[in-house]
């Protein structure tokens, strides 16, 4: 799995997305490398979530290319379901399967898509539920859990598929403030395992501490990108500076 010759897992080239006349993504290009933690920050409505959702084709891009290990995923012959099983996603609204309990939520993808046996799927699920501290809730239904607990199960569900990349779409935005910490902790622990992650977030402190690379998106373009130090301590663009100033005022 660890192919060191192939540094880029994902290459996004000139990605565009229109809803009618409204251009949400104008021209987006970036790479995600093996083992890299990338965060995407920026004002609301800047196209961050849309960009992330384009990567696993929950939104159909209007133009551009997305290459996965060099293969264009927009090619009609591309095996989309296999691709999606290798690119996990964690949603803002958790989206746990309401009709399944915690354990089943983490098993169904492994069984249906990866073709793992029941016992293998169960073992993997329990191992990952332990990682997120939810192993004592395996019989609970999603409606019986708090938001933070649901999101941790959603993370366990995603990593049970052994993905190459994990996408996080504002994973803490729908949570009560006291639950944000538990989810961010889980994510930090995950980052240390060497998993490649792309995170859309409004948690600036978290983004600064965890990232290898930060993208600042605004008005459908990447206004600035660089290391956390470059973006948070020495932002070049006026938009970035203004955005971060507002955040500082709020946080401190």
């Amino acid at each position: 799995m660890n192919n060191n010759n192939e540094q880029h897992i994902l290459q996004v080239e000139h990605l565009q997305k229109n809803y009618g006349d409204h251009k949400v993504l104008r021209d987006i290009s970036f790479n995600i490398n093996q083992g890299e933690i990338m965060t995407i920050i920026g004002p609301s409505g800047g196209g961050k979530s849309t960009m992330l959702r384009c990567i696993n084709l929950l939104e159909e891009p209007t133009g551009g290319k997305i290459l996965f290990h060099g293969n264009n995923i927009l090619d009609p012959k591309f095996d989309l379901n296999t691709y999606r099983s290798k690119v996990g996603m964690v949603f803002q609204q958790f989206n746990l399967f309401n009709n399944k309990n915690v354990l089943q939520n983490c098993m169904i993808g492994q069984e249906m898509v990866l073709g793992r046996s029941k016992s293998e799927a169960k073992e993997t699920a329990i191992k990952n539920l332990k990682k997120v501290g939810m192993d004592s809730f395996i019989d609970a239904k999603p409606s019986q859990l708090s938001g933070g607990q649901q999101q941790r199960v959603a993370i366990a569900r995603a990593i049970s598929m052994d993905p190459e990349v994990l996408l996080f779409d504002e994973p803490t935005s729908a949570l009560d403030p006291e639950m944000v910490g538990e989810v961010l902790n889980t994510m930090s622990n995950l980052a240390k395992t060497g998993l490649t992650m792309a995170i859309v977030t409004h948690e600036m402190g978290f983004a600064r501490d965890i990232s290898d690379k930060v993208l600042f998106m605004s008005d459908g373009v990447i206004a600035e990108q660089g290391t956390p130090d470059q973006i948070f301590n020495h932002p070049q663009e006026e938009k970035t500076q203004k955005f971060l100033r507002n955040f500082r005022r709020e946080q401190f």
Partner: peptide, 18 residues
């Protein structure tokens, strides 16, 4: 049925009939 249920299942790679 909440749209997120479809999306979460799609994101796992499940086919429409699954």
């Amino acid at each position: 049925t909440a749209k997120g249920q479809f999306e979460a299942a799609s994101a796992l790679g499940m086919t429409h009939s699954q």
